[in-house]
Amino acid sequence: MAIQSILFFGYLGDLLGRSRDFDMSDAPVTVRDMRRLLASAGDDVAAAVLNPCVRACVDGMIVRDDAPVRRGQEIAFIPPLSGG
């Protein structure tokens, strides 16, 4: 998945941009791998993606850290929900 766009919502969108491209040449296998891989991109990204309160989404579904990630899937990170 060489370059992959990752989506960020809520305050993470302000902090990191709503969508940001990352080099994912070392294709992650699980969400946990992906968090570690993204964390090397910089301190602000590391703090966001390693925060256990920040949840990962794959193809628009909130998933656990052991969930698989495949090439071409939509990846997003979300802060705790605010509610309506």
Partner: peptide, 21 residues
Amino acid sequence: KTDAGFWKREDDASGSHWIEP
């Protein structure tokens, strides 16, 4: 109020603040 998939931000004279339930 707690489980809807939104992230809310209040804008006022002091700036913008993301809020949680």
